[in-house]
Nucleic acid binder design. Structure first.
Lengths: 199, 199
DNA sequence: CGCCTTTCCTAGGACTCCTAGGAATATACA
DNA sequence: TGTATATTCCTAGGAGTCCTAGGAAAGGCG
């Protein structure tokens, strides 16, 4: 009998596909072994435990999404870049819900440093070049972008927008418009720094 | 031998405390039974299954957080209301990480309708009265607020802000400033509607 | 006091995670 | 080519969780 040809890479890839199909919490060592035609105990020469399996999915997803983000960003600047990147982010989450969920697991510091997490914040900083923000505002803006993207996608995935006629796509477009305006009118120092409104 | 006095309410409360202590994924029927001094099989006269246990924690948390939000909102308007509500939200998540995580599980439509989820969006709409937005902009703005709050808290909880000197509190304050400015300068119609920047 | 409902029990099956130790297969090197 | 070594995969089994079935004790009610 030939060997099944299990490698860590193929394992992570299969786990990611499984996660997209049935949800991350159903990504189990046993089920994965079943898909490779192998006994579950055999997988423990490749992975430490079930948790590490999910971590590998997270790392895989971070890298994939970073690639998509980079492709979306290429040749764009300003609001164009912002929208393209945001759509890449949301599109990936729609296409790969399990991988996206996996991205939310907390990585230990070493794994986090070896992951593509840094590329993500670097790309957001690249977007912000179109808005000329100095530190520490740049860091704050990166966190605003990350929070808004992740928050929207997360709520959408949890079905939070289903119970209302207004479509999620329209809201998403409006949120991006608003982010663009907010970044251009970034509050300069303490409190308010703008005109209009509040009679 | 007297009975243990298990009720659905005490069960949900204990599950919520357990979730805050050890994380939602470790909230198990067996562990809960152990804490009540009862065999695990005994709990199935009170709950349908393990998943429903987590759903009950979610419903409990939604109600608690709605109460806090309402208290924070009382007597405030405009940016004051925005900041107070946002801080209530973030504070609850910090205080009750397990409950907060539970809030993210997807509820079936009936449960969702019976939950305090509606109160949450109502309160956000109340905040927006200080910014005079008509539909559908109001719905979009509610989604922006929800996304930003949840996204920030979620990333913070996942340790996403630890690897940078800039404190999360400062960024949070800045994010709220920015939201306030964004709501006051809400982009009126198609695309841009503002001055400044983009040379 | 006897009846009925609810709560809790024992028993057990199915599944997952993971370890230990051994067998089979591929690879490297003489 | 043949043999040593490393890796992959196996069987066996323990521990833990989820959940069902059916029965026994505890409390409430006529």
């Amino acid at each position: 009998m030939a060997r099944a040809g299990v490698t860590v890479e193929r394992l992570a890839e299969a786990a990611a596909e499984l996660a997209d199909e049935v949800g991350l919490e159903k990504v189990t060592v046993s089920e994965l072994a079943r898909r490779f035609g192998v006994k579950d105990a055999s997988l423990y020469s490749h992975i430490r435990n079930a948790h590490q399996l999910r971590v590998r999915v997270a790392v895989l997803a971070l890298a994939e999404l970073a690639d998509r983000g980079a492709a979306a960003l290429a040749g764009r600047a300003g609001k164009d870049a912002l929208v393209a990147f945001a759509n890449a982010y949301r599109g990936y989450a729609k296409e790969h819900p399990g991988r996206y969920t996996a991205m939310q697991v907390e990585l230990d510091p070493e794994t986090a440093k070896a992951s593509a997490a840094r590329r993500h914040s670097d790309m957001m900083r690249a977007i912000l070049r179109g808005y000329s923000l100095a530190e520490p505002d740049q860091t704050d803006a990166v966190r605003l972008l990350g929070s808004t993207f992740h928050g929207f996608v997360s709520l959408e995935q949890a079905g939070g927008f289903h119970h209302h006629p207004r479509g999620a796509d329209e809201s998403w477009g409006r949120v991006l418009d608003t982010l663009d305006v907010a970044l251009r009118n970034w509050p300069t120092h303490e409190g308010d720094a703008d005109a209009s409104s509040t009679p």
